[in-house]
Each structure stands twice: as structure tokens, then as C-alpha cells.
């Protein structure tokens, strides 16, 4: 199994090494990679701010309709991503109620960075929510009670006790969300073909110029993703003591 996972990557990188120099210096490729990283960063930020409170609610509270909420969170993993793109287009397109409302405020989702981010948020949010939920579940709620008895408000108990203890799990959620966002193609290509992300650009090159032109870009993307992911993993693997004040 491991071989099946690693061989295509090794094969692509080794056979395309010669064209890497050209791929790095092509402005279109560099712009597409930067667009992907920036949009994935924004998507992770948005998912963090809205997903973490939802994850905390799911981990700590029982309420009517919780199983329905659970199912909704997993939906983006279940449906094909081009279908997700079409659904988002129908919801956020200029002729829809919500999309029209945003258009009147000067925010369009079709073929803009907002569209790219929206598609990324949609497909990657389950990774953030589930990671954070598990992280919160692993923190004993009794610790919050003790913090409250010592004078901490609900928010301060969360900020000083629960969040630091769940931090590593949440960080993992951020990494997975970012990585999933970078790799998204199906939803992005339907909602926002432009500005081209790395995945869309790669598809574009492959369709128009063939495999030999797409391979070095593929190798570059793989190297970048693995390098960044490894660096972040190494940083977060160090003993971590978040500050609390």
C-alpha cells in the first residue's frame, strides 16, 4: 500500500527533474502557486474562526438536531467536488439571491479570489471541524469547572485551559485544511476558473500542452507541498507550551 502511495510521486519527481528550472521561472506557474497558497491560507483562517466554535459546541454540548449537524459537516467529503462547485455556483452566482446580494456590495464569487476561497472553505471545513472536535473531546471538562471556580469566565476558561490543551489537535486541523484547500480542483474550477490556482493551471497545461509540459509543474507542486508540510510538521512536533495570560 505504501509503495502504491509513494511510487507515483517518486516517479513524477525523478522523471521531471530536468524541467523543474523552467517551471520555477514561468510567471504563470509561480502566480498560480502563489494564488493557491494565499487562497488556502484565507480558507484556513475562515474555517478556523467559524469551525473551532462549532467544533467546541459539538464536543461539549448535547442538543436537538446534533446528528443532523454532524451529517451536514461530513457532506463536503461525500459529494463529488465538481458537484459541490456547481452547488456553490448556484448559491453564490450573480443571479442567485445570496450571490446577487454580495454582487451589490461589490463582492463577486465567479472567477475571483473570493470564489476560490469559498470553494476551498466548502471542501476543507470538515477537516478543521473534526480535528478540533476530537481535540476538545480529549480535554477533561472538569478542568473548565475548576477554572470557573477559580474566577475564570466561560471565555477565559476556554482561552486559558481548553484551547491551549486542544491546541495541537486544532493545529493539525489547520494543516489538513490548508493542504486540502491547496489540492482542491473540482469545486474551484467550476466556481472560479480565474484567478488560476496551481491545480487549475496544471489541468490547463495538461489539456493544452500535454503530459510532458504538465509533468515538471506537477513535480514542482509535489516538492513544494511536501516541503512545506514537513517543515510545519517538524515545527509543531516540538514540545509546545502555548502562552496564556
Amino acid at each position: 500500500m505504501l509503495l502504491f502511495l509513494i511510487l507515483p510521486i517518486i516517479n513524477t519527481v525523478s522523471t521531471s527533474a530536468g524541467g523543474l528550472g523552467e517551471a520555477i521561472t514561468t510567471a504563470e506557474t509561480v502566480n498560480a502557486i502563489l494564488t493557491s497558497f494565499f487562497a488556502a491560507y484565507l480558507a484556513t483562517l475562515i474555517t478556523f474562526f467559524f469551525g473551532v466554535p462549532l467544533a467546541y459546541t459539538l464536543a461539549r454540548h448535547e442538543f436537538k438536531g446534533k446528528s443532523l449537524v454532524d451529517a451536514v459537516i461530513d457532506l463536503p467529503i461525500l459529494i463529488p467536488h465538481n458537484a459541490a462547485g456547481i452547488s456553490l455556483l448556484m448559491l453564490l452566482g450573480p443571479r442567485s439571491l445570496i450571490g446577487g446580494g454580495f454582487s451589490s456590495l461589490g463582492v463577486s464569487f465567479v472567477d475571483t479570489i473570493f470564489g476560490v476561497v469559498a470553494a476551498m472553505v466548502f471542501v476543507s471545513s470538515p477537516f478543521m471541524i473534526r480535528s478540533a472536535e476530537e481535540a476538545f473531546k480529549s480535554v477533561n471538562p472538569e478542568l473548565e469547572k475548576v477554572a470557573r471556580s477559580l474566577g475564570a469566565s466561560t471565555f477565559n476558561a476556554f482561552k486559558n485551559v481548553t484551547f491551549p490543551l486542544a491546541f495541537r489537535g486544532i493545529l493539525t486541523g489547520c494543516l489538513l485544511t490548508w493542504a486540502r484547500s491547496i489540492s482542491e480542483f473540482g469545486a474551484v474550477v467550476v466556481l472560479a476558473y480565474y484567478p488560476k490556482t496551481a491545480a487549475v493551471h496544471l489541468y490547463d497545461v495538461f489539456v493544452n500542452w500535454g503530459l510532458s509540459a504538465a509533468a515538471p509543474i506537477t513535480a514542482l507542486l509535489i516538492i513544494l507541498a511536501v516541503t512545506i508540510f514537513t517543515v510545519i510538521k517538524l515545527i509543531t512536533a516540538k514540545p509546545l507550551k502555548p502562552s496564556f495570560s
Binding site: N140, E142, L143, K145, V146, A147, R148, S149, L150, G151, A152, S153, V161, P164, L165, K241, P242, F244
Partner: peptide, 21 residues
């Protein structure tokens, strides 16, 4: 009153010391 306004000292079972502090 919420717990933080009662000013009661609470020592739960297993002490529940904050493990990251």
C-alpha cells in the same frame, strides 16, 4: 451566581491540575 462569582475553593476528584501549567 455563576461559579466565578461565588468565590468558592473547589478541589475535584483527581485534583484536575491544569496539565500544561
Amino acid at each position: 451566581f455563576p461559579p466565578e462569582k461565588r468565590r468558592l475553593g473547589y478541589v475535584p476528584q483527581n485534583y484536575m491540575l491544569f496539565p500544561h501549567m
